[in-house]
């Protein structure tokens, strides 16, 4: 009978071991391909790499060059404009749409997928479609002129100063439906009893939203912010399809800057340093935010 406990012991040990064994390969892969390459990129940013990686250290030269480039300054400014407007407007529109849809209206089943649908498209498709819509020669302006409104003027996409806002328009169109879905799920999760109790206590509609519903949507705000901000920072395909970084270099973002310096301009060192700066930027925003949010839960 001595073997039975040993067997059970082996079984439990195996049971404990299997999840770890199954997870180990993917963990190793993630460590290598995500964190390993982050370290590698960080290392490259201190080397004189050009066409291929080189291991000749040059200190902070790439960073000092990077911040002297007017092209990089443009990219950073564009990201600030784009990210703040994109996140702000998407959240606002998403929240309003969700609130309106939550009024137990008829046809919600039809409206919801209509708003959500743009998310099913890739940014390349969105970019191309909006490129045509916004092009003064064939799109909106042209159509208005054909309809007789000849003073209509909308050529932002061709204007260096306004082109970045057209990127915002296309990106907001793409994402607000998705934000709406997230908020809608949040709204549905709110206990009806609390709302009824509030109504009984004589709370108005506005008060109910401000004091009960919005605070309870906090997790939804967090997910929306996290998802939208990483979409904003890694925006590449939308800009490429919509404006190609133009007119001139007016809509370049750090992601397009990084790609072109690393892979087509043979300046891998500067490209790597811009990638590191991007990572630092995201970390600087996300880490305190996540820290604050997650700590409060406990």
């Amino acid at each position: 009978m001595a073997s039975a406990p040993a067997q059970a012991d082996f079984k439990t040990r195996l049971q404990n071991l299997i999840p770890k064994l199954v997870l180990a390969p993917s963990l190793a892969v993630i460590f290598l391909f995500v964190y390993g390459f982050i370290i590698f990129t960080g290392y490259l940013s201190f080397t004189d790499s050009r066409i291929l990686p080189s291991f000749n250290l040059v200190g902070f030269e790439n960073y000092s060059k990077l911040f002297r480039l007017s092209h990089w300054t443009t990219s950073i400014t564009n990201l600030a404009i784009f990210a703040s407007l994109y996140i702000g407007i998407s959240t606002l529109i998403g929240l309003s749409l969700a609130t309106f849809l939550d009024q137990k209206i008829r046809g919600e089943g039809l409206l919801r997928p209509i708003y959500l649908y743009p998310m099913a498209l890739s940014f390349i498709v969105t970019g191309t479609a909006w490129k045509w819509l916004l092009d003064p020669g064939i799109g909106l302006e042209h159509t208005m002129h054909l309809w007789g409104w000849t003073s209509f003027h909308f050529d932002w996409i061709k204007n260096s100063d306004y082109a970045i806002y057209t990127v915002v328009i296309a990106a907001v169109w793409q994402s607000s439906g998705f934000v709406m879905a997230m908020f809608l799920a949040g709204l549905r999760g709110i206990d009806n009893e609390i709302l009824k109790a509030a109504q009984m206590d004589g709370a108005g509609n506005w008060q109910m939203y401000r004091r009960i519903i919005l605070p309870q949507l906090r997790p939804a705000f967090l997910s929306a912010f996290v998802i939208l901000s990483h979409l904003a920072v890694k925006s590449y395909d939308l800009v490429i399809a919509l404006t190609g970084g133009g007119p001139g270099r007016a809509t370049e973002l750090p992601a397009t800057f990084m790609y072109s310096y690393t892979f087509t301009r043979n300046q891998m060192g500067i490209g790597a340093s811009s990638a590191v700066i991007m990572l630092m930027t995201i970390a600087a925003i996300m880490v305190p935010y996540l820290y604050a949010e997650l700590r409060e839960k406990k």
Partner: peptide
């Protein structure tokens, strides 16, 4: 080389587009 060619592009295109 490509790095200089592209730097040249940056300036010319910014000028041509009015920046």
């Amino acid at each position: 080389p490509a790095s200089i060619k592209n730097a040249y592009y940056d300036v010319v295109t910014a000028f041509f587009n009015g920046s």
